[in-house]
């Protein structure tokens, strides 16, 4: 089981967190076109490589955070809480 480094709690079993998928920007609902909105709803880069995604520390600190994960190797970079920028590779926790 993957160890996911929660920015508050430290490394956690992935099963103790909730996965919320690929991170994407929400268009302005007042002005967006159907195409923009449905791109946000449905289309996904789905890369085989580094992916910025959303996790929720549901059994620990209950914070949503973003983390870059390599979808082929399972490698993880440093997590970020909302409002902060993704940083460099964190020390190897494994």
């Amino acid at each position: 089981m993957l160890l996911v480094p929660c920015p508050n709690c430290g490394p956690m079993n992935a099963a103790d967190l909730s996965y919320n998928g690929e991170s994407h920007r929400r268009p302005d609902p007042k002005t967006c076109t159907p195409e923009e909105w449905r791109t946000y709803l449905y289309l996904r880069e789905n890369p085989s490589g580094w992916l910025l995604e959303n996790w929720y520390c549901s059994s620990g600190c209950r914070r949503h955070f973003k983390i870059e994960r390599h979808t082929l190797t399972g490698e993880l970079r440093a997590p970020v809480l909302p409002g902060r920028k993704p940083g460099a590779t964190q020390g190897d926790m494994k």
């Binding site: 709690c9 099963a15 103790d16 549901s58 059994s59 620990g60 600190c61």
Partner: peptide, 10 residues
């Protein structure tokens, strides 16, 4: 202090 699932209960 920590949070952890015990027997499936948070």
């Amino acid at each position: 202090a920590l949070g952890n699932g015990i027997a499936g209960v948070t």
